[in-house]
Design a protein around this nucleic acid. Sequence first.
DNA 1: ACCACCATGTAACAGGTTACATGATTAA
DNA 2: TTAATCATGTAACCTGTTACATGGTGGT
Lengths: 180, 180
Amino acid sequence: MATTISATEAALLGLLAGRELSGYDLQREAEKSGGFFWAPTKSRIYAVLPQLVERGYATSRSVVQANRPNKQLYRATRAGRAALQEWLEEPPVFEPERAPILLKLYLGELLEPDVLLEHVRKVKSEAQALKLRLEAQPPAETVYAELTVRHGLEWARAMIRWASRAERDLAARLSERAAD
Amino acid sequence: MATTISATEAALLGLLAGRELSGYDLQREAEKSGGFFWAPTKSRIYAVLPQLVERGYATSRSVVQANRPNKQLYRATRAGRAALQEWLEEPPVFEPERAPILLKLYLGELLEPDVLLEHVRKVKSEAQALKLRLEAQPPAETVYAELTVRHGLEWARAMIRWASRAERDLAARLSERAAD
DNA sequence: ACCACCATGTAACAGGTTACATGATTAA
DNA sequence: TTAATCATGTAACCTGTTACATGGTGGT
């Protein structure tokens, strides 16, 4: 049957399973997740929703409001939930990160070591900020939400460890150079 | 002046700084890096190269070969190296991973726990494979190359730790369910 | 006889971003 | 009065993937 939907479509259908939401609601839902693992722009959301309806994965109805702009509410259909199921059951694709910092590092010979050092320090401090933010979060309600937070934490810790090491190595290189 | 080039363009210019390479060469160069931090398709490479020439960032010359197809050799110009410099000096954008597994997890309630468990185990085993591969690598020649490898290692270790924990949590949940 | 390597590209499509455009209500 | 919230969308653009297309040489 090869239903194949994209990650964005899956996310939308997931949120529309069992309840009605507008494009606007969906966007805020995305922000709530902190932008980890899902961060579509609103133009993308508004583009995808009608496509879902067209393919029979969702229904929409207009709601006329006083004092507020009118809106469209969407809800996943049975076919939509089935397509989502299929997507969820697909084994996740594994691929190591492709961070731009790595490319800068790879071309490191072309860059002044002190600039590279700054870059690394930026990564480190932002990873530390993320770690604090995640640690400060109230414990999640479900096992699932908890695991996504933990994923972010492990990632942040790895980046901190890596950046600390990189900082040392680059600093050493800098002082060697100064000694020339 | 807002030169702004993309990461792919930066990568190509970096490899074309100081030597002449063909599109074919560049593609192999990309593979050599293991596809970490850079993995353009050949069609993309062949599309970008003429654009670099058009913008004055690279020059090209045709080489007629006997017994082999003819080829185009490219080399970065001074303007190209300057644009690359600018790109390299831009502070790297920090953004936590957006792995599809997290979305599947986020919508975990909609999925059978055992399927989710399988997914997590797949992540774990692939992260372990990556770790072994990186550990088996001969020590890199430059500090820079070494640091990219280390980045991959820290990342892999983080994924393994996370997946191990997730595995335990989900398995516990499964047996609780069985007890009902 | 077959496969890998060398070498270049086109066409169609998918997914996503940024900027633009509009306009009322409500709380500080 | 100023800003945020509610609410929807279009248009232009960029980046990237997959599939298709071609064809000689050299090794097993």
